[in-house]
Simulated scan of single mutants.
Amino acid sequence: MEQLQINTSSKKYSVWVGEGIRFKLSEYVPDSLQQKVSSVLIITDDQVAPLYLQDVKDGLGNQFEIFEYVVPSGEQSKSFQQYYDLQTYALEKGLDRHSLIIALGGGVIGDLAGFVAATYMRGIPFIQVPTTLLAHDSSVGGKVGINHPLGKNMVGAFHQPEAVVYDPQVFQSLPLHEWRSGFAEAIKHSLIWDVTFYQWLQENIDDFTAIKGELAEQLLLRSIAVKASVVSEDEKETGIRAILNFGHTLGHAIEKELGYGKMTHGEAVAVGMIFAMRLSEQQFDISLPVDQVKAWLTKLGYKTEIPDHLDADQLLHTMKKDKKAQKGIIRMVLMKELGRVEVVSVDEEPIKELLLKSIKGE
């Protein structure tokens, strides 16, 4: 069992990584909570529930009163309606300020369940139990929330979990598109922060079926360590934490314009990262290994160009609504060199020109 400590200004907590850890979950409920928990609400989705819900319930043992709530899988569940229904369910079941929420699932469940925890009775504790590779990014750092029809993750809060309990055994049930979605965030962490991690990824992973056992644990620990380093410096995203949005300005716009759930988050971010690297070359008059990264992504099954039926003007309009934008001016995370990025205000014209080229596959 491996442990990684997350230190933020508001809370310190552990990330536990180990195969089979889901079967003994009660051992990883922090001591500070053990005697206080009045009840547990497990929030999961209809894809995860048949696979791992009983494992987690068994892992909690008989010391807690346990409730469960299953939502439809997919980005569409990060909605006001699901959020409202969950609040209603919690009230009906009598959850109180000493109740604990467990988010059992991928990033959607973590965001939704975390936001319910952040706002129920003005905040109750929750534990992340991720079941996807993608969730290694979203489960750490305390960002929780839901989508609005006008933008992704526009309604939310910062609410750190009490612990993150990660069992890489669950990866073996992931479909291929979920592998791609999660691995894109690991690539992102390496590109923005840790060149040696980028090299390690290229040397060790050219096939998702290889990600198991010790390799899976090392991948999680090294990638989460990047997130932990950034979050420890800037918990509320007032400064450096914004660099974690590398590839996300365009990625989120693609997700919205396609319709949430039509392309996975990580696959959209992969397109966004290639776009950001190309724009970086133009803005800073530098040369980056765009072709190398693009070839690696392509080999792993990613599409690296914007879907050709999307409209450049509409994408630009959506990018202007990004949370980093200021007074309608687009601010993007651009790369100065591998392992070093910064947030930069960018004029619309070069963005639009590059959008048009990417849509045409140039």
Score class of each variant (00 low, 15 high):
Gly272His: 10
Ala242His: 03
Tyr166Ala: 07
Val56Gln: 03
Lys324His: 05
Lys236Pro: 01
Ile254Ser: 07
Leu91His: 10
Asn62Lys: 15
Gln3Cys: 13
Gln63Phe: 12
Pro130Asn: 10
Leu334Trp: 07
Leu174Val: 01
Leu356Cys: 11
Ser223Ile: 04
Ala163Ile: 04
Ile224Val: 02
Ser77Asp: 06
Ala210Ile: 05
Ile306Ala: 09
Ser79Asp: 09
Ile240Glu: 01
Val17Cys: 10
Ile254Gly: 02
Glu267Val: 02
Ile359Gly: 05
Ile243Ser: 02
Lys212Gly: 04
Phe126Glu: 05
Gln160Ala: 11
Glu255Asn: 06
Ala216Cys: 13
Glu68Arg: 14
Tyr120Glu: 07
Gln63Thr: 00
Pro149Val: 04
Val140Arg: 11
Tyr13Asp: 04
Trp193Leu: 07
Gly110Thr: 02
Thr88Lys: 14
Gly106Cys: 08
Gly107Ile: 06
Phe246Lys: 04
Ser39Glu: 08
Gly145Arg: 07
Thr318Leu: 15
Leu354Val: 00
Met154Gln: 08
Val17Pro: 03
Ser173Lys: 14
Gln283Lys: 15
Thr304Ser: 07
Ile66Phe: 07
Asp31Gly: 13
Gly107Thr: 03
Gln199Ile: 05
Lys212Ile: 06
Ala325Leu: 11
Val170Lys: 08
Val231Glu: 03
Lys212Arg: 15
Gly239Ile: 02
Lys336His: 13
Leu53Glu: 07
Thr304Ala: 09
Lys320Val: 03
Arg340Gly: 07
Val144Glu: 03
Met1Pro: 11
Ser39Lys: 09
His148Met: 11
Tyr198Asn: 11
Ile224Thr: 00
Gln292Cys: 10
Gly182Glu: 09
Ala295Phe: 14
His309Ala: 13
Leu41Glu: 02
Asp194Ile: 06
Leu25Thr: 00
Asn153Trp: 09
Ser138Asp: 08
Tyr302Gln: 09
Val48Asp: 04
Asn153Val: 01
Glu214His: 14
Lys57Glu: 10
Gln47Ser: 14
Leu220Arg: 05
Leu112Phe: 10
Asn7Arg: 15
Ser139Arg: 11
Ala90Tyr: 09
Leu25Asp: 02
Phe208His: 04
Met1Cys: 09
Val15Ala: 02
Ser229Glu: 13
Glu27Gly: 08
Val226Gln: 08
His248Arg: 07
His252Arg: 12
Ala312Met: 08
Ser73Cys: 14
Ala118Glu: 05
Thr298His: 11
Leu316Val: 00
Thr196Val: 00
Asp285Arg: 15
Met273Ser: 04
Ala113Lys: 09
Pro72Lys: 15
Ser181Cys: 15
Lys11Met: 14
Leu297Gly: 00
Gln326Thr: 00
Pro175Asp: 07
Thr196Asp: 12
Trp193Arg: 05
Arg22Leu: 15
Trp193Phe: 14
His148Gln: 11
Pro289Thr: 01
Ala118Thr: 01
Pro175Glu: 09
Gly114Asn: 13
